[in-house]
């Protein structure tokens, strides 16, 4: 999938999501609930390549999900 689209989506989620709890977990829960495994994988690869484009929370969320996928 177009990684720029995914990037835009995850940044938008980061900016808007305001559920209670640690932000990284909140983001991870959202992506787990609504994104396909492939989308999560693709964005993780992008984060590994260009971490500076993403907030700490998004990076932490994706690491969390990546860890789950590997387990």
């Amino acid at each position: 999938m177009d990684v720029n689209r995914l990037k835009m989506m995850v940044i938008q989620i980061d900016q808007n999501i305001a559920f209670a709890g640690p932000k990284a977990e909140v983001i991870a829960t959202h992506l787990r609930k609504f994104w396909t495994p492939q989308m999560r994988k693709d964005i993780f690869q992008e984060i590994e390549k260009n971490p500076a484009d993403f907030s700490q929370d998004v990076q932490a969320a994706l690491k969390l999900l990546h860890g789950e996928a590997k387990a």
Binding site: M1, D2, R5, K33, F34, W35, T36, P37, M39
Partner: peptide, 12 residues
């Protein structure tokens, strides 16, 4: 796991 939404299908 969730599947693709319409925009995901179109992008893909």
């Amino acid at each position: 796991d969730p599947g693709m939404r319409i925009p995901n299908m179109l992008d893909n």
